[in-house]
Design a protein around this nucleic acid. Sequence first.
RNA 1: CGGGGCGUGGCGCAGUUUGGUAGCGCGGGUGCUUUGGGAGCACUAGGUCGCAGGUUCGAAUCCUGUCGCCCCGACCA
Length: 594
Amino acid sequence: MRVSRLSLVTLRNVPADAEIPSHQLLVRGGYIRRVGPGLYAYLPLMWRVLSKINTIVRDELDSLGALETLLPQLQPAEPWERSGRWQGYTAGEGIMFHLEDRQGRQVGLGPTHEEIVTVLAGDLLRSYKQLPVTLYQIQTKFRDEIRPRFGLMRSREFIMKDAYSFHADEKDLEKTYALMAGAYARIFKRCGLNAVAVDADSGAIGGAASQEFMVMANAGEDLILSTPDGSYAANQEKAVSLPSVAETLPPGEERNLDTPGQATIEDLCAANGLSPSQTVKVLVLLARLDDGRKQPLLVSLRGDQELNDVKLTNAVTQRMGSPALEIAPINPEQLRQQGLSPLPFGSIGPDLEDCSLQDVRSWEKRFVRLADPTALNLDRFVCGANSADQHRWGATWSSMPAQIEADLRNAKAGDRSLHNQEQILEERRGIEVGHIFQLGSKYSDALEARFTDKDGKQASLLMGCYGIGISRLAQAAVEQHHDEAGICWPVNIAPFQVIVVIANVQDSTQLDLGESLYGSLQSAGVDALLDDRSERAGVKFKDADLIGIPWRIVVGREAEAGRVEVVERSSRSNSTMSHQDALNSVLVAVQGGT
RNA sequence: CGGGGCGUGGCGCAGUUUGGUAGCGCGGGUGCUUUGGGAGCACUAGGUCGCAGGUUCGAAUCCUGUCGCCCCGACCA
């Protein structure tokens, strides 16, 4: 390709709406353009990058025997209703774009394809003899994000590879899951990314085992906790750790404490010479459940611990038999609307009585009481006395109502690893580029996707599902590979592997040599770009750096002598040599990396 | 949804406080000079100042409404 024909528009100014380097560079380099909030056009250079990533992905998945398909983006509501996800995905903060067609049918734009593929699999896969099967597609997904940001990192329309596997038994599912994990590791490596697999929550997709593949970068939206020896890594949503040892309360009788204005753990401890680990804090929350119930919760944590929303949501979902769609603190306004008296927030104890809910209008009439082990393991503690400006010193669980024990706290940097107490957890930010799940029969049960097993009996298909954010991956690669001057693409996903820059196209010797090198590269099967523009050399160098082509051959001053300069973008190393040597060394470098 | 900010040529911005009929840098076009790290000079094209009302002799500027976009938050008392 000739740069003169590429419609290349690079920007010197940093676009005002781009925050992180990768987003700025992709816009400045002429890779993407914003069309609306969270909506981007992939310009010709970007499309080449995405195609290269897709080629690698296809190669690895095909080698596992997976089958490429293409499924509808416009999806009827019905299978989503049967899987129980229509409500959660469309109501309130739901993430699915949905609409009514001219016949009044409800349809959604696919944020993911479990429902569709499960229905299909149920139709197609009738016997264990057909299993296992893995189907995949590379396609645009739609998600009505609360707040799109960072360019392609969190956009409302993005390209995703999603794969779904179907099995007759657990063992077979686990086998494919493991194979897929291996393929993912190879895919990210071939894309030039430093990605790590971490334990993850399976979230709205549901299911058992689940791992995320994270590209470590400061711009990442996820917090990853890991041990220095690499033996443990997990998303904070899921991470576990050994809590620090609580300080014990000195001996003494249980008594009341006057705690005027001490509404936070911090204030309480400062005013009374306590350590946060000697206290129990109680959060008053309301869970909105999928079946319509509004369930008040009392959640007890040791004072020095933070609540983990994801763990809480999972615990509530499990106990209530209906998915928790949203859990939020109860505020005084809500109490008023329910016709309840105000609660002494800041002085709540685990034994706040259910009678304070007696007159509720639309909520459940009893609290569900959950407590984290860090709180339950305290023999004696300080907690709220359920009356304003009053706490209790030396309280014990024996005088409290029964609690549901559940891990509800955030693991954090500095905690000891549960798996090896010698190891202290560290935290880093990560960009989630892939996620694999063992779904089991969650969807096949709901959608009645069954097959006939060896014994002639009907059984639900066991499923795995596996995603890679293709467009996000491309941007993550830029986030991981750039410098002040621009992008430094890993050669395997670069839009072009080599750029031949003719320093001065007015000089016919330079022009001829440049053209000839370009032709030789093309005949050798290299993706080459020829900068044949009648710009000054400096402009062409700046653009080449910005768009990040891994290898540059400069045909300039010494063209007369048949000598050219070879520059490696990432290291900036350069050397001058004969054009034959240049061709050979670039061929070796480029093809060695493929 | 809550809080903050911003809408002025393709991009980045000034001008708004103190109304007087639109400007700077980059980019585009033409010509001459220049030619290895985003050149210089000259000429030139391009904006109903987000939109709709209002005040005024006169509105980018003041008032009202409205739409859009960006950032932060939605962390726990």
